[in-house]
Each structure stands twice: as C-alpha cells, then as structure tokens.
C-alpha cells in the first residue's frame, strides 16, 4: 500500500511543477530560436539603409549585459536566502535584482527610442523588423519577469516564506536565469556579430 501523506503529496506536486516549468522554458526557448533564425536570415536586408554596425553601440550593449548578469547573481543570492528562510534578505536581494532589471529595461528603451527618433522603426525594412522583434521580445519577457517579481514579493511580505512562495520564487529565478542566457545569445549574435 502506498502512503499518500499530505507532505509527500505536496512534495510530488512540487516536483511536477518544476518539471513542467522546465518544459515550458524549452518551448519559450524554441520561440526565441525562431526569432534568432529570422534575424540570421534578414539582418543583411537593410535595403540601402544603415546596418547594425552603423547603429549599435557596443558600450551600451556591454553595460546591458553586465547589468543583467549582475541581476542574475543577486537573484541567485536571493534564492540562497529563500531556502535558508531569511525573509528580509530575500526581499533585499530580489529588490536589488528588480532595480537592476529595471535599469536594463531603461537602457534598452533608450536604444529603441534613439533608433525610432532617427526614423528607424519596425516597418522601415526587414533588418529593423527582425531586430526590434528579437530584442523587443526579450525585453517583453524581462518586463513580465519584473511584474511577476514585484507581485511575488508583495505576496512574500504578506504570507511569508511558505513552501508555496519558495516554489514560486524558484520558478521566477529559473525564468530570470533563462532570460539571462537568451540575452547572452542576443549580445553575441546581434551586437558583437555586427562588428565582426
């Protein structure tokens, strides 16, 4: 006879959710794969307009990269605190992660607005269509990650570090690291590659 105690029931549910979230992350990765492939095909189609080499600012992209990497680090520290049950540290580290994520988003928006003010929009040509869509989709993911973080932190303040909340934070941190990895590819294949 298998015992279905309440605790093992909870644990099994945890394990399932973790596994399911990994599968979800893979599906998200495939969506990014499409965007990367599309960018690879279309990035030279500038129809006589400026290319990435003319427009991209490497220092800006590097700053974005460093900020995002740091935010991943602070997110990791927050998770250590979460597993140890230090609520205050969790709030602090995630707070820092949130600020870093927000500044990343700010820099990205700055780049986008500069391009748009210079007359380069999503409808200018295929290069800009694929650039804005690839980088913008990542930015949208960051935005939803920030929204998710803010709301989860509010609930952590209200409910404390319950099993449920720690699980939610773990999923959030997985998502955040995942976005970091995608950004490394964007940094390499979009920004660095333009200068090769």
């Amino acid at each position: 006879m298998v015992e279905h105690s309440s605790e093992s029931h909870e644990e099994a549910a945890n394990e399932r959710v973790m596994f399911g979230f990994w599968v979800y992350l893979m599906t998200d990765l495939l969506m990014f794969a499409v965007l990367f492939a599309v960018y690879a095909v279309l990035h030279d189609n500038t129809v006589g307009g400026p290319t990435g080499r003319d427009l991209f600012s490497l220092p800006l992209a590097l700053a974005e990269t460093l900020i995002l990497l740091t935010s991943s680090f602070t997110c990791g520290l927050a998770m250590i605190a979460a597993r140890a049950g230090h609520k205050k540290q969790v709030l602090n580290w995630f707070g820092l992660t949130f600020i870093l994520g927000l500044s990343f988003l700010g820099l990205e928006l700055k780049e986008f607005t500069e391009f748009i003010h210079a007359g380069h929009t999503i409808s200018t040509n295929a290069f800009f269509s694929s650039f804005f869509t690839l980088v913008g989709t990542h930015g949208l993911h960051i935005t939803s990650g920030l929204l998710w973080m803010a709301i989860t932190l509010i609930y952590v303040m209200k409910r404390g570090l319950t099993t449920h909340m720690v699980r939610k934070l773990t999923l959030l941190s997985l998502f955040w690291h995942f976005l970091d990895i995608v950004w490394i590819f964007i940094f390499t294949l979009v920004y660095l590659r333009a200068f090769v």
Partner: peptide, 11 residues
Amino acid sequence: AHFFTTTLGGN
C-alpha cells in the same frame, strides 16, 4: 513589419 513581404527585404 517586413518579415514575409515582397518589399523592403522581406522573405
């Protein structure tokens, strides 16, 4: 946008 159009670099 110009992903699949015939003009402005779409494919």
